[in-house]
Measured scan of single mutants.
Amino acid sequence: ETFPLDVLVNTAAEDLPRGVDPSRKENFLSDEDFKAVFGMTRSAFANLPLWKQQNLKKEKGLF
């Protein structure tokens, strides 16, 4: 299941849709939104070091 970017960005855990893991908001973006937000594919993002993934998520309001 995916959700629009505005539902996930800068949203407190208690305000997220049911079933969304607040530590993994990026997994609930569509592939198109994911690429638009991070400028890379999911596989490229997954290959980044964890610290870099976290920094990007913070920068984009998805942490």
Rank of each mutant, 00 (worst) to 15 (best):
F45A: 00
L48M: 11
P17N: 05
D6P: 06
A44C: 10
V37C: 12
F3P: 03
F38P: 00
V7C: 13
T41L: 08
L16F: 07
P4W: 04
T41W: 03
L62E: 02
R42I: 02
S30V: 02
T11I: 11
K60W: 04
L56G: 00
A13Q: 10
D6A: 13
D21K: 04
K58P: 00
G61A: 02
D21P: 03
D21M: 04
N55Q: 15
D6R: 08
L48P: 00
P49Q: 02
A13W: 12
D6E: 14
E1C: 15
F38I: 01
E32C: 07
F45H: 00
K58A: 11
L8T: 04
A12L: 12
L56P: 00
D31G: 04
L56N: 01
Q54S: 10
S43F: 13
F28V: 04
S30P: 02
V37E: 02
K25M: 15
D6C: 13
E59L: 12
K35W: 15
K52Y: 12
L62Y: 09
N47L: 13
S23R: 11
D15W: 07
A12H: 10
L29E: 02
F38W: 01
T41R: 03
F34H: 00
N55I: 12
A13N: 15
R24Y: 12
M40W: 01
R18A: 15
K25I: 15
V37G: 00
K52M: 14
V37Y: 04
A12G: 09
E14Y: 01
P49G: 02
W51E: 13
A13M: 12
L5F: 10
F3W: 15
E59M: 11
K60D: 01
A44S: 10
K57P: 00
S23H: 15
L8E: 03
S23E: 15
F63Q: 14
M40I: 07
S43T: 14
A46R: 12
A12W: 06
L62K: 02
G61Q: 03
E59R: 09
E26S: 02
R42N: 01
S43R: 12
G39M: 09
Q53K: 06
L62P: 03
P17R: 03
L8Q: 03
P49M: 02
D15F: 09
F28A: 09
Q53W: 00
K52H: 12
N27K: 15
L29Y: 02
L48H: 01
Q53R: 09
E32Y: 10
E26M: 03
L62G: 04
L50P: 11
K25L: 15
L16V: 06
G39T: 03
F28D: 04
V20K: 04
L48W: 02
T2M: 09
F45P: 00
F34G: 00
V7P: 03
E32I: 11
E32K: 10
A36P: 00
G61V: 01
K58E: 11
R18L: 15
A36I: 12
G39V: 02
L5C: 09
T11H: 08
G19R: 07
S43Y: 13
R24P: 03
N55L: 14
F45V: 00
V37L: 13
E32T: 12
T11K: 11
G39I: 01
F34T: 00
E14M: 06
T11N: 08
F3R: 04
L16E: 05
R24L: 09
V37P: 00
N55D: 14
A12K: 14
L48Q: 03
D15R: 09
T2P: 05
S23T: 14
K60E: 02
F45G: 00
A36W: 12
Q54A: 12
D21R: 03
F3Y: 15
P17F: 02
L56T: 02
G39D: 09
R42F: 04
L48G: 00
G61F: 05
P4L: 05
V37F: 06
D6M: 09
